Measured scan of single mutants.
Amino acid sequence: HAATELTPEQAAALKPYDRIVITGRFNAIGDAVSAVSRRADEEGAASFYVVDTSEFGNSGNWRVVADVYKA
């Protein structure tokens, strides 16, 4: 099962156990969220919340930071 994305309210009520950072070329924010979901799932997380997204220069590469939560 894939890790689910939390709302800001849900994330605020929970304590993350880790923070992950992924970088890559994403065509849309949805693609980045899917990549975070896969990584969170690999780490055994039940859910995640994207904290920050930023573009690296003009290369089209993105850096996505997310907190991950157990259950």
Rank of each mutant, 00 (worst) to 15 (best):
A12I: 09
G57C: 07
V51T: 05
A2T: 13
V36S: 02
L14G: 06
Y49I: 09
A12L: 10
W62P: 01
A28E: 09
A40H: 01
L6N: 03
K15P: 05
P16E: 01
S47D: 04
T23L: 11
F56K: 05
R63Y: 11
V36N: 00
P8M: 13
S54W: 12
A71N: 11
Q10K: 07
Y17I: 03
A66Q: 00
I22E: 00
I29A: 07
N27A: 13
V64K: 00
T4W: 10
A46D: 15
W62L: 07
L14N: 08
I22P: 00
G57T: 07
A13V: 14
N61I: 15
A28R: 10
E5T: 05
Y17F: 13
V68I: 15
G24Q: 02
I22D: 00
T4R: 14
S59K: 11
E42K: 10
E9H: 09
I20E: 00
V50D: 01
P8G: 11
G57W: 08
L6C: 05
A28C: 13
S37H: 08
F48R: 01
V50R: 01
Y17P: 05
I20W: 07
N58H: 11
Y69Q: 00
V36H: 00
Y69T: 01
I22A: 00
I29F: 11
T7I: 04
T4F: 14
G30L: 10
F48L: 00
A2I: 10
D41I: 15
S54K: 13
V68G: 00
T53D: 02
A66M: 07
A28Q: 11
E5L: 12
T23D: 06
F26I: 02
A12G: 08
S47N: 08
R38I: 11
N61A: 10
Q10L: 08
R19N: 00
A28W: 10
R38Y: 06
A13I: 13
A12F: 06
Y17S: 05
R63D: 03
E55P: 11
V68D: 02
G44L: 04
K70I: 10
A66H: 00
V21H: 05
A11F: 02
S47Q: 08
D41E: 14
F48T: 00
W62N: 03
R19W: 06
A71C: 12
P16C: 07
V65H: 02
P16M: 03
V21W: 05
E5D: 02
E43I: 15
W62H: 04
K70V: 08
A45I: 05
A2L: 11
Q10V: 06
G30Y: 09
A71V: 11
N61T: 12
H1S: 09
A11N: 02
N61Q: 14
F56L: 14
R38N: 06
A45Y: 15
R25T: 09
A3T: 06
V51G: 01
R38S: 07
P16F: 03
A71Q: 13
A40G: 02
A3P: 15
I20L: 08
D52G: 09
S34V: 13
R39Y: 13
G30Q: 14
A13M: 13
R39L: 11
Y49D: 01
N58Q: 12
L6A: 03
D31V: 05
H1M: 08
G57F: 07
D41S: 15
G30D: 13
E9K: 09
L14W: 07
R39N: 04
E55S: 09
E43Y: 15
G44C: 09
A40L: 05
F56V: 13
S54Q: 15
Q10Y: 05
L14A: 07
T23F: 13
N58W: 08
R19E: 00
A13W: 09
N58K: 10
R63G: 03
A35W: 04
V36D: 02
I22K: 00
Y17V: 04
F56Q: 11
S59A: 11
N27H: 12
G60H: 06
S47Y: 15
T7G: 06
D67P: 01
A66D: 01
E5F: 06
A40R: 01
V33R: 09
S37E: 06
A35H: 06
E5R: 14
F26G: 03
S59V: 10
S59I: 09
I22H: 01
F56S: 09
K15N: 08
S37L: 08
V51K: 02
K15D: 07
L6E: 01
E9A: 12
S47K: 05
V68N: 00
D67M: 10
Y17L: 03
K15M: 11
E5N: 07
N61Y: 15
Y49V: 09
Q10N: 04
H1K: 09
E42M: 11
S54I: 15
Y69D: 01
D52E: 15
R63N: 06
R25N: 11
D52N: 10
F26D: 00
A32Y: 06
V68P: 01
E5W: 07
V50W: 06
A11P: 02
G44H: 06
T53F: 15
T7E: 04
T4G: 06
D41L: 15
G24C: 07
Y17E: 01
A28G: 15
R25A: 10
D67E: 09
